[in-house]
């Protein structure tokens, strides 16, 4: 499974990194983000490209989320 750590990266890199990971392995991906903007951008991209997503909040103080996505 592809794991992507986008923490600290600013727009549009979290989405670009997710896209690159999916180019290598398109079945499943887990993305770590640390801002709500990156979270919604990555979620929107995964939705648009046909993934089922499940997001959990790892740390509310640092806005860290883990987004897991599976190809529908």
């Amino acid at each position: 499974m592809a794991q992507v750590d986008t923490r600290g990266m600013s727009c549009p890199q979290p989405v670009l990194m997710t896209k690159k990971a999916l180019d290598i392995n398109s079945a499943e991906v887990t993305v770590l983000v640390d801002s709500k903007t990156a979270k919604s951008n990555v979620e929107r991209y995964l939705n648009l490209t046909g993934y089922t997503i499940n997001t959990i909040e790892l740390d509310s103080k640092t806005h860290t989320f883990e987004i897991s996505a599976k190809k529908q």
Binding site: A2, Q3, V4, T6, M9, M17, A21, I24
Partner: peptide, 15 residues
């Protein structure tokens, strides 16, 4: 250049 490391048979892309 992309930082790619294979972790447990998977792909890891990170900062």
């Amino acid at each position: 250049r992309e930082t790619k490391a294979t972790v447990q048979g998977g792909v890891k892309i990170g900062a």
